[in-house]
Design a protein around this nucleic acid. Structure first.
Length: 580
DNA sequence: TCGCCTTTGAAGTAC
DNA sequence: GTACTTCAAAGGCGA
């Protein structure tokens, strides 16, 4: 499969071309991409991306200092991730701006990321090498150093690692999740935390092995953000976090994780009072704060005194509960595969097309997502899966339901209650597309849609890289043409759920609706597609870069070909919205 | 200032 | 089991 580059490369994220941003490009383009175009593009992207990124972060040092950081502690692991990914990317590519598969998840690219540690608990050579390569500036201890987790890195730093990572199973997301933002719980980190560290797999508390403590967190990203650091450019720029920690971060169930930039102070005073987890009710055995925790302040007020978990709140009396509900930290949902992908690729897309509107960008990303190879998607699914796992571990009692109604107003509620007339009106309103019609921007890829639906075992899918394109085409059920766009309203309408298809992610018991990728729902003429790629506001196509439109990748072509019979007449337009 | 727009996926509710 | 809803990120834009 052309898109697959050496499996090994994958792991390291070296195969930049897997999904070249310009996948539309044919080989010739690819060649050029790799050479001059890439350079140009890199320059362009770098400048653009940096510009945008730096705008927000402008110089880390500067911003870190002047920016009011209302919640310095809440460093987004995401931003951190981005920074590091970028840094890593540059480091790895020698300055070239390539697109790793997981820029945001550099560690995920560690070969055998699932087990970077040797049986004896020591970091595996490969992992170590990886770390050193990826985080050279982070002072990754050498073999010996790694073992001595305490020496290079403060004990307080080390203790957070285990929180996220299990002894023998380093969570790929660990690095992302700025548990670094975490705080260290005071005192005797290891000893005190050890009992709280749960083995992700077993759920049994375990004592972190020294070797697993510091290696990945020689420096907490968050801390980096605050400390003038040579890695300034690595420091998270936008103060946003994927999972921010509530101001009272340490009061929430997972105080230990709350460490972050603000924690810089920690560096000096590790045991600042607020850092000490109150851990009142033993909400969480792990005492792990998670970036997903967002204080209501983020969107509301950061004053929550209680760090009670939602579940805790639920136990309170209605009135009180409601009141506290406003204060309680908002634990965000873990990002799904697409979201992860979006976060990673958004900057690139923005850089390439200069588009700023997320709606348009998301359309592009959505198409590109479909154009991703199975393996590539699998990686994101895997990441998402792990993130969910981690999230569930961190917030055992959390439920997506907890966030229901948190939003001020549900967008487009009309969806459910809209009448046909409404649709009609809406359709008229949406007569303009953000993106050009399928012809222009739609890629066949979009037609075949995601090949994987949260595969239960993405890794398994990956495990068989040998799978020929044909296989892909088979699995890649083109059909996701689906329509998610239309799907919103009736996406199940034709859904033929993939029987057992690639189905479902491990957790995907619910992959239900969305997992119906393979479903063949051709929205032709369906007016219901309010979620079609059609936007009310037009975006000049001129602003779109050709590369942004998902191009037919070989894989897509294969898929299309195999399904030609089915789709020949339906090239896939994502949506043929009946706008008339 | 707030909500919508858009995307996919996960998880929830409702039937 | 199916269908539908909500939320997750993002940032420009309209009201």
């Amino acid at each position: 499969m052309p898109q697959l580059n050496g499996g090994g490369g994958d792991d390291l994220g070296a195969n930049d071309e897997m999904i070249s941003f310009k996948d539309e490009g044919e080989q010739e383009e690819k060649i050029s991409e790799n050479v001059s175009a890439e350079r140009d593009l890199d320059d362009l992207k770098s400048s653009l991306v940096n510009e945008s990124e730096n705008n927000s972060s402008s110089s880390d040092s500067e911003q870190a200092e002047r920016r009011p950081q209302p919640r310095p502690d809440l460093d987004s692991y995401e931003k951190t991730r981005d920074y590091f990914s970028e840094a890593l990317r540059r480091q790895q590519d020698g300055g070239f701006f390539k697109s790793p598969h997981y820029p945001g998840y550099p560690f995920l690219m560690i070969p055998d990321l699932t087990n970077p540690y040797l049986s004896n608990g020591a970091l595996s050579p490969s992992a170590r090498t990886y770390l050193q390569m990826k985080w050279p500036l982070l002072d990754v201890p050498g073999a010996a150093g790694l073992k001595d987790s305490r020496s290079p890195t403060p004990g307080h730093l080390s203790n957070k690692v285990p929180v996220v990572q299990h002894a023998h199973h380093v969570h790929p997301l660990t690095p992302l999740i700025t548990y670094s933002n975490e705080h260290f719980s005071p005192g005797t980190p290891p000893s005190h935390l050890s009992p709280e560290i749960l083995d992700p797999k077993t759920g049994i508390p375990r004592t972190p092995h020294p070797s697993e403590l510091s290696p990945y967190y020689p420096l907490s990203p968050g801390a980096v953000g605050q400390i003038p650091h040579p890695l300034g450019w690595l420091v998270p720029q936008q103060g946003q976090h994927m999972y921010s920690i509530p101001p009272g971060g340490f009061r929430h169930p997972y105080p230990a994780l709350a460490m972050n930039a603000s924690m810089s102070s920690l560096v000096s005073s590790r045991f600042s009072p607020h850092m000490v987890p109150h851990h009142p009710h033993g909400l969480h055995q792990t005492g792990i704060p998670h970036p997903a925790i967002v204080s209501p302040a983020i969107k509301q007020e950061p004053n929550s005194h209680d760090n009670m978990s939602p579940s805790m709140h639920s136990r309170k009396s209605p009135g009180l509960a409601k009141k506290e509900e406003d204060k309680k930290p908002h634990i965000k949902k873990p990002l799904n595969a697409f979201m992860l992908y979006m976060k990673e690729m958004r900057a690139k897309v923005v850089a390439e097309c200069t588009l700023k509107e997320s709606a348009a960008i998301n359309q592009i990303l959505g198409r590109r997502w479909h154009s991703l190879s199975r393996e590539e998607q699998a990686k994101y699914y895997e990441l998402a899966r792990k993130e969910r796992q981690l999230h569930s571990q961190l917030y055992p009692g959390w439920s997506a339901r907890d966030n229901y109604g948190k939003r001020k107003k549900r967008k487009r509620d009309n969806k459910s209650d809209s009448t046909p007339e409404d649709f009609s009106i809406r359709n008229k309103k949406q007569c303009v597309q953000y993106l050009p019609s399928e012809k222009m921007c739609d890629s066949p890829g979009s037609s075949h849609g995601s090949m994987l639906d949260s595969p239960a075992t993405p890794s398994a899918a990956l495990a068989s890289p040998a799978a020929p394109a044909a296989t892909h085409s088979e699995q890649a059920q083109p059909l996701s043409l689906t329509t998610k766009p239309e799907g919103r309203l009736h996406h199940h309408f034709l859904t033929g759920k993939p029987s057992g298809s690639a189905s479902s992610s491990s957790s995907s018991s619910s992959s239900s609706s969305s997992s119906s990728h393979p479903s063949i729902s051709i929205p032709i003429g369906t007016s219901s597609s309010h979620s079609s790629p059609i936007l009310s506001r037009p975006i000049p196509f001129s602003s779109l870069h050709h590369s942004m439109l998902s191009p037919p990748s070989p894989f897509h072509q294969a898929a299309l070909h195999s399904h030609h019979a089915l789709f020949q007449s339906q090239p896939l337009s994502l949506v043929t919205k009946s706008s008339d």
